[in-house]
Design a protein around this nucleic acid. Structure first.
Lengths: 314, 314
DNA sequence: TATCCTTACGGAATTCGTAAGCATG
DNA sequence: CATGCTTACGAATTCCGTAAGGATA
């Protein structure tokens, strides 16, 4: 048993059982990958992959049971390197963060600024993506810290820690009809709406609110980020619904924001990390810079926790 | 990074930093071990061991942090083999159980008999030792299941599950003075006592009871097991104190047992397994045969649990 | 001086990539 | 017929054990 075999197994699944692709990812030859997999199967005495003809098509029952252990072992291998890294380079290295646009654009900047000041020798990489992509980046090891709203906790391999709560605002041009009188879902439903794409920045909770009220939304445009939303609101295409944090009185002088916390459910932004993982010391520092209540100890404890907090029997 | 390196690290610690001994345990050459360790240290960029001159004398700070991860990786490697083993051989294989004498002699026989009947192709190995040795055998992987009273939970790497409760009895020859009237600690203290060695079968709780009563025990003989105790009681050397379960009316016709649950604290026998480990299916079956409330699911959940059940923050 | 680790070296085994072969959608 | 996996083979590398060297209790 060796790590190259384990890596081949893991990548084979990630690459949809295409060993040629695995070979590229692992920077080796395709017959090599083929051999690694076969040799591990021989050593363990079970077939890990289902083969139809010569192609791999899926995981066998044993394969499905082996996989989580294989992944943990590879994570642990990285953990060793990270633990060692803390000792050899101390406060020097690189930190990869995955975040949704809203977070990267509005919530993170101050944390990043403070972190850069205290950790000048750490290279920050900020990856952007949908909440699903953020989760994926954490799972693949591409990012060590993920910041998104919900969804992170949906994967067993990840731990999500509540970070802060926020609500939406209604964004309108200056001198818009909605600025007079109370804003209700009923009134909103009469306007063309511009908001997030499904799956982004609490869009789900917006839809829920309208649906529970028995109202139909007239969404004329969806975007992945508030900047785009605001741009089109400014053009008069409709009424925007965006995260409150995305509105800046200074910057958005042409626009007005109406707090809508009474209309839509509260959203919770979460910091996600790999379960069972170990991060560089400065990564814990970053998390605490972003969310002061998430101390290194709290995060480490969460990482070490089991999927379902079990009770000692009897 | 490879597994031989990790094994060398682990054994080096187990062998008290004597690489020559490690080489014997791992069935390889001493310079080989030396190289494995050095190469891993070079790859990680940190020294794992403290060297005074050429000898290894201890773990460095990084070494102490790396060790638990290294051990988990090696446990996981075994886990892979065990998971695969369940598929290739099904209900065939071997199960290594470590137990104290009392358990092996009085509690286990019926479970072993039932298990043998339902799993005829599983080879059982029953190791015997002090509670500390039982824990050690679990830690080293020599035994998969451990059965002892207390102490198992004292190691972070082990999970102990309460199994059943029991108390002590006073064992006397037929027609002994103690058979008349009530048995109290005060009366017991007037007789020469024969009981377990310290650390065995609840000896600690016996001492506690006397100490709390401000009484001094006159222990004339200690043994590791009840058979020896009973033998000397039969010879008239003194009054025995042993686990109630160890007395058998049929067998011990020369003796009488006086229930002493009102005198000494209740003891709890525990089943212990390695945290983070995976057992063969039949091993879970065995545990349930021994303690019906410890179903495979319960045990697996306990194994997957973190050391201190943590709360999701906030 | 005996124990224990390191270094040096040579042979053996393993590993890996290229090239050819074959099955499948 | 293009894609994708297996087999075959040869070269390169790695690996490991023996033997010698040196430090320490």
């Amino acid at each position: 048993m060796n790590f190259q075999q384990l890596r081949s197994i893991r990548e084979a699944i990630r690459c949809g059982f295409n060993l040629t692709e695995v070979a590229n990812v692992l920077a080796t030859s395709q017959p090599g990958v083929s051999r690694q997999i076969r040799e591990l199967e021989e050593e363990l005495g079970v077939e890990i992959f289902v083969r139809s003809g010569k192609r791999l098509t899926g995981l066998t029952e044993p394969g499905r049971e082996l996989l989580p252990v294989v992944e943990r072992m590879l994570v642990d291998a990285d953990n060793l390197r990270r633990i060692a890294g803390d000792f050899i380079e101390g406060d020097r290295g690189s930190l990869s963060i995955a975040a949704t646009h809203s977070q990267a654009r509005y919530a993170l900047p101050s944390a990043v600024r403070d972190f850069r000041a205290t950790h000048p020798n750490v290279t920050l990489q900020l990856h952007q993506g949908s909440p699903q992509q953020v989760a994926q980046m954490l799972l693949s090891g591409q990012a060590e810290v993920g910041i998104a709203t919900r969804v992170l906790a949906e994967h067993d391999e990840l731990v999500a820690m509540p970070c802060y709560r926020w609500t939406h605002s209604v964004i309108v041009p200056a001198e818009h009809a909605l600025l007079d009188g109370e804003v209700t879902l009923e009134r909103l439903a009469t306007f063309p709406l511009i908001t997030y794409e499904l799956g982004f920045t609490g869009r789900g909770t917006i839809d829920d609110a309208f649906e529970r009220a028995g109202l139909k939304m007239n969404v004329v445009l969806t975007a992945m980020d508030a900047d785009v939303i605001k741009t089109y609101v400014e053009l008069g295409l409709g009424v925007g619904i965006a995260a409150s944090i995305a509105f800046d009185e200074e910057r958005d002088r042409q626009l007005r924001a109406i707090d809508a916390r009474h209309l839509f459910p509260i959203n919770t932004t979460e910091v996600g990390v790999r379960r069972g993982g170990v991060l560089r010391r400065f990564a814990y520092d970053f998390i605490q810079t972003f969310a002061p209540h998430l101390s290194p100890e709290v995060v480490k404890r969460a990482q070490a926790s089991a999927v379902d907090t079990p009770q000692a029997p009897l």
